[in-house]
């Protein structure tokens, strides 16, 4: 077991094995995507309250899940890289960032589309929306930093540090494909989380997923309440 983990940390071995596995993951991803999409959009029964607009959760919830868990994974692999100097961890963090940013954008966009029939608005400064937006900015910052470093480092000495050498390893995105679309099976739990306006049943779980969420949500909540128009008017009118 330990020998296997040790092997995994060597980039050479890792790329060899991931190149072999990649086609498999492609097939699995395509199949799952197809089944999930068709099942969710065509066969699942319509919601008794929201009608067909609820079907957005088959896109929205997995995307939001990924957006947050990829962020945590990036943090973990960054830590692994810093503590144990495992290069694969750094490369993993590098390739996770664009995927995470894309998922965050998908979650935000699909949420906005769902918000129109349900809330009657594209956007509101709700705690969850705000924290997802900040998450998107964080992702973009990480990507920009990586980009700036790798363009600078094309001229400096580094023994196999991950960034700047990606051209050598075209298979680097393999592992990310694996997690691209978790099966729609988790939708039941999150369906409740999605219905923000019907109460906060799922919010604890939602908050717990991302460290970032955990940090920002309660504060943003407090902030939103404080800024609610009724209160400001009261205070100023008095």
């Amino acid at each position: 077991m330990w020998a296997f983990i040790n092997k995994l940390r060597s980039p050479k071995w890792f790329y060899a094995i991931s190149a072999k596995l990649q086609p498999l993951f492609w097939v699995a991803a395509t199949l799952l995507l197809l089944v999930g999409t068709v099942w969710g959009l065509a066969f699942a029964p319509a919601d008794y309250q929201q009608g067909n607009s609820f079907r957005i959760i088959y896109v929205h919830v997995p995307a939001a899940f990924l957006a947050q868990s990829i962020f945590v994974s990036m943090a973990v692999s960054g830590l692994v890289f810093m503590v144990w100097k495992i290069k694969v961890a750094d490369m993993a963090a590098t390739v996770m960032a664009p995927l995470g940013a894309a998922m965050t954008f998908v979650a935000l966009f699909s949420g906005a589309v769902w918000g129109v029939p349900t809330w009657g608005t594209w956007w509101m400064w709700d705690a969850r929306l705000t924290s997802m937006l900040i998450l998107l900015f964080l992702y973009l910052g990480v990507i920009a930093l990586r980009g700036a470093f790798s363009s600078r480092d094309s001229g400096s000495c580094r023994v196999g540090a991950g960034h700047g050498r990606r051209h050598q390893y075209p298979h680097h995105q393999v592992l990310c494909r694996l997690v691209l679309y978790p099966s729609p099976a988790c939708h039941f739990h999150d369906y409740r989380a999605l219905c923000h306006d019907h109460g906060h049943v799922g919010t604890a779980a939602h908050h717990g997923i991302g460290l970032l969420q955990f940090f920002y949500c309660p504060h943003a909540d407090a902030h939103a309440q404080r800024n609610s128009p009724s209160r400001s008017q009261q205070a100023l009118g008095a």
């Binding site: 900040i134 900015f137 964080l138 973009l140 910052g141 920009a144 930093l145 700036a148 470093f149 600078r152 940090f215 920002y216 504060h219 943003a220 407090a222 902030h223």
Partner: peptide, 22 residues
């Protein structure tokens, strides 16, 4: 170490400033 780090700096730092701002 980056030639034009100014904009990148704000991109990195501003999201982290939010709790203090709130």
């Amino acid at each position: 170490g980056l030639a034009r780090g100014g904009v990148l700096l704000s991109l990195l730092v501003l999201p982290l400033y939010i709790p203090v701002l709130i």
